[in-house]
Nucleic acid binder design. Structure first.
Length: 822
RNA sequence: GCGAGGGUGUCGGAACUGGUAGACGAGCUGGACUUAGGAUCCAGUGCCGCAAGGCGUAGGGGUUCAAAUCCCCUCCCUCGCACCA
């Protein structure tokens, strides 16, 4: 087996464990991947979502994103960019707190342990992170600035405390943001979510709804992400219309996207929480019934309330009537839980003829249905089309199409002063407090005299005090509330006795600005210096999961825009480009989870197959943006591939250039791999390199020139083996110091091409001709083929098509015969 | 229901602006080398057929010399939102 005629390295075995540690140590000790602000070079900021260091350690899903961006980062360095590719820890959060409670270990200790494990695991995979810039959101030196930014929101009036019904997770015992409620359940623990009125800190993200929407347009985000953000923001255009309440000086304002149908509004519906109900209690003659309905509605979870299929319920507010400002007729007012307090004004004008929900409600309670848009059959269902219908029963709107009538009605409303053009968003303000221990304390102090007072900047951070017991109090307050020494303090303004806020921030706080801190992670005077941010921002390429599109991605864009408006960051958007990877499923095709017992541990795999094989497989497993099941066999195949790469050393010859017969293949592969990396088509890039390696073995020879380029393009995926082989082969320096190989477009084209010959649309033969061959020559070659002659026998050629370099197509009269016969 | 993306061998998946469907990997079959092999190497592998040939990209129709790719209809799957007025 061993060929003693070769060099001294001939026949050496591929042992990943020997070479991987070696190169990781070299990279680290020489600071190879340290990011430097070098004004003479273009910069590139590559970002992956920093992990939550859970107790389970790294999951095979994490490396999918990290390997992908590591490939991009390594390629960029070779292309001459100054690259920032950082990593850190999103370290505050519930699972750690829950684990700490269960095992009676302080969350800080648990976090430290988990972070150490994650760091070790990530290092074993050989990522080119700049480890000197590691951040940890639970580090006081970090959350000092999270608190500082929060105070900026507070100063500008964008952080406010409000009594409002919130989503309350009965299991975590905390309030949740809307974004954290999935299908009526807690996104984190799956517990039931109910509505609860609580005083909560809120961040006014709605002030930025329009900017968040508009500025999305020019960004290089994958379409799916843009669409989801747009849907979540949920802008809709229409009008607000005021309906006077008979016998009072009050009016009910509604938001509608269909002001054109105002003449068809035959009743109104208020949300059960609508404040007008209490305001008009004296006039309501069926109060008991109303009260009863409201109680029932409050008891229901949002999930129950939102069940679409369920039948509509409601009660009238007897004694209360409103006036339709268009018809001047009195119409009844009802309450129903299909109207949400949290959208629009919490009240609607019901147009049963042209809104399906109103139609169902009207049908059930025998309310009048008036047709104001002709075109459907409102006996059967509401007619909602606005393109084709024609306005009727609507005085000055009659004859118009609804789209025109909408405009005309808005003009009319504004003229009469009973309504106005309006825009509404589904996006709600962000519930920002959590009644938990393991999070950033909200740096505010409540003073009887001065109200809410911010902790002075020079006293930040407000340290999270050590606690023996972090069990939620059950009083729906944070465990911090039990620490009297900590809670009771002095008002920074008047010096009088005051109390600290005991709620903490959600774990989306720290992650809303971590990418800023990476640019200047050790700064103790600012969250990051403007100079450093100006060099690095915006993030050039951010990859992460689809699950964070409506949460983290939107929140961090909001924070960034706010900071930009305060002149604190240099760019209006944080991320120039956003891509998303698909999830990795268990071998059974199910979502990986401990309960299913299908979780794959990367540590063992790295030990058995090596980090390089693991990385190659993570990229080869399937299309990057799709969900794919893990396969141990597939990983083995990638290890075999690296073995075959390694064995190229045995067939290496000294020629410094490409051999003529491989020149086109080399240029083509460099081109394909280069472009595929950029398009995140890592699976086909790997496949192309596998093919090339197979071809070298088939030939039994590879030149030094060929090996050199192959190692360079394979390096971003498999950095250890390629550095080792580079050294073994005695190439100059190290791969990380090399330039990315180039290709010559002209040389990617093979001189000779195989042209399929089709007769009546079927392939009958192939001919090999020079790419530049004339049509006549190709024809001659084609007609000489035995199979072609056989199929043309007794047939009349009526058409011939030659697509140069692609196909020669012959059509005979007989191909048309079956049709003419009929 | 609305929005987005998909249905290709036994499996993961390839296929440029329409141009030899199934690259690459896995699995499987046969062979070689071996004390052995769950290592390695070689050959084969969409389906039917001895072959010639025929059939094949969810199903049906259409455009075209030529369709996985373009158009129409139907079915199915995944993801997101879900009484948003």
């Amino acid at each position: 087996m061993r060929d003693i005629t070769g060099g001294p390295e001939m026949g050496r075995e591929y042992v990943p464990s020997e070479i991987e540690k070696k190169w990781q140590d070299i990279w680290e000790s020489r600071g190879v991947f340290k990011a430097v602000e070098d004004p003479s070079r273009p910069k590139f900021y590559a970002l992956v979502e920093f992990p939550y260091p859970s107790g389970d350690g790294l999951h095979v899903g994490h490396p999918r994103s990290y390997t992908a961006m590591d490939i991009i980062a390594r390629k960029r360095r070779m292309e001459g960019y100054s690259v920032l590719f950082p990593i850190g820890w999103d370290a505050f959060g519930l699972p750690t707190e829950n684990y700490a409670m269960k095992h009676k270990i302080h969350p800080r200790v648990v976090t430290q342990r988990n972070v150490d494990r994650f760091r070790k695991q990530l290092k074993s995979l050989g990522y080119s992170f700049d480890w000197s810039r590691e951040v940890n959101t639970s580090d006081p030196a970090y959350y000092r600035w999270t608190q500082w930014i929060f105070l900026k929101f507070f100063e500008k009036g964008l952080a406010y405390k409000a009594e409002m019904p919130i989503n309350w997770c009965t299991s975590c015992k905390i309030g949740l943001a809307n974004e954290e409620v999935v299908g009526g359940r807690c996104e984190r623990c799956g517990g039931e979510v109910i509505r609860k009125v609580k005083s909560q800190w809120m961040l006014k993200i709605t002030d930025y709804a329009q900017k968040l929407l508009d500025d999305l347009e020019p960004l290089d985000y994958i379409d799916k992400v843009k669409v989801q953000q747009r849907n979540w923001i949920g802008r809709s255009e229409g009008a607000e219309i005021d309906f006077p309440v008979v016998g009072t000086d009050k009016k009910i304002t509604v938001f509608t996207t269909r002001p054109d149908t105002l003449f068809g509004a035959t009743y109104m519906v208020l949300s059960p929480e609508h404040p007008l109900i209490d305001d008009c209690k004296a006039l309501i003659t069926n109060w008991d019934e109303v009260e009863e309905y409201r109680k029932e509605a409050m008891k229901k979870s949002d999930f129950e309330r939102a069940e679409v299929a369920k039948e509509k319920t409601g009660v009238p507010l007897s004694g209360l009537r409103a006036i339709n400002p268009a018809t001047n007729r009195e119409i009844p007012i009802w309450i129903s839980d299909y109207v949400l307090m949290t959208y629009g004004t919490g009240a609607i004008m019901a147009v049963p003829g042209h809104d399906q929900r109103d139609w169902e409600f009207a049908r059930k309670f025998g309310l009048p249905i008036v047709e104001v848009v002709k075109g459907g059959d409102i006996q059967k269902e509401a007619y909602t089309d606005i393109e084709t219908g024609v306005m009727v029963n609507s005085e000055f709107l009659n004859g118009l199409r609804p789209v025109e009538a909408i405009e005309k009605m808005i003009e009319w409303l504004e003229e009469k002063g009973v309504g106005r053009r309006a825009v509404n968003y589904k996006l709600r303000d962000w519930v920002f407090s959590r009644q938990r221990y393991w999070g950033e304390p909200i740096p505010l102090i409540h003073c009887e005299k001065c109200g809410w007072v911010p902790v002075p900047e020079d006293q930040l951070p407000v340290l999270l005090p050590d606690l023996e017991d972090y069990v939620p109090s059950g009083t729906e307050e944070s465990p911090l509330a039990r620490l009297a020494d900590w809670v009771n303090t002095q008002c920074p303004k008047c010096g009088g006795p005051a109390k600290r806020e005991t709620d903490t921030m959600p774990n989306w706080a720290g992650s809303s600005w971590y990418f800023l801190r990476y640019t200047d992670p050790h700064n103790d005077r600012e969250f990051a210096s403007m100079e450093k941010m100006k060099y690095w921002l915006p993030v050039d390429w951010y990859n992460g999961g689809m699950e964070h599109v409506t949460l983290h991605l939107l929140y961090s864009r909001f924070w960034h825009k706010f900071l930009y408006d305060q002149g604190l960051v240099p760019t209006p958007e944080p991320y120039q480009k956003r891509t998303a990877h698909g999830v990795i499923l268990g071998e059974d095709g199910e979502k990986m989870s401990k309960s299913r017992g299908n979780v794959v541990n990367p540590d063992e795999l790295v030990r058995e197959f090596g980090a390089d094989a693991f990385r190659v497989y993570e990229m080869f497993i399937g299309a990057f943006d799709q969900a794919v099941p893990w396969s141990q066999q597939g990983l083995k195949g990638c290890r075999r591939f690296l073995e075959r790469v390694w064995k190229l050393m045995d067939i290496l010859d000294g020629t410094p250039t490409y051999s003529p017969e491989f020149e086109a293949a080399m240029h083509r592969t460099i081109k394909k791999v280069s472009l595929d990396y950029e398009r995140m088509k890592f699976n086909t890039a790997v496949a192309a390199m596998m093919s090339l390696v197979n071809d070298f073995h088939a030939r039994g020879r590879i030149t030094r020139g060929e090996l050199r380029s192959l190692l360079l393009i394979l390096n971003p995926v498999a950095p250890h083996i390629t550095e080792e082989m580079w050294e073994m082969a005695g190439f100059e320096g190290h791969i990380w110091e090399q330039s990315w190989p180039t290709w010559d477009e002209a040389k990617t084209i093979e001189e000779m091409v195989e042209i399929p010959v089709q007769i009546d649309g079927k392939n009958r033969a192939t001919v090999t001709v020079p790419r530049s061959a004339f049509e006549g020559d190709v024809r001659d070659a084609a007609l000489q083929e035995e199979r072609v002659q056989r199929h043309l026998k007794g047939r009349e050629i009526i058409k011939e098509v030659y697509v140069p370099g692609k196909v020669y197509s012959i059509v005979t009269a007989e191909s048309r015969a079956p049709e003419t016969r009929n």
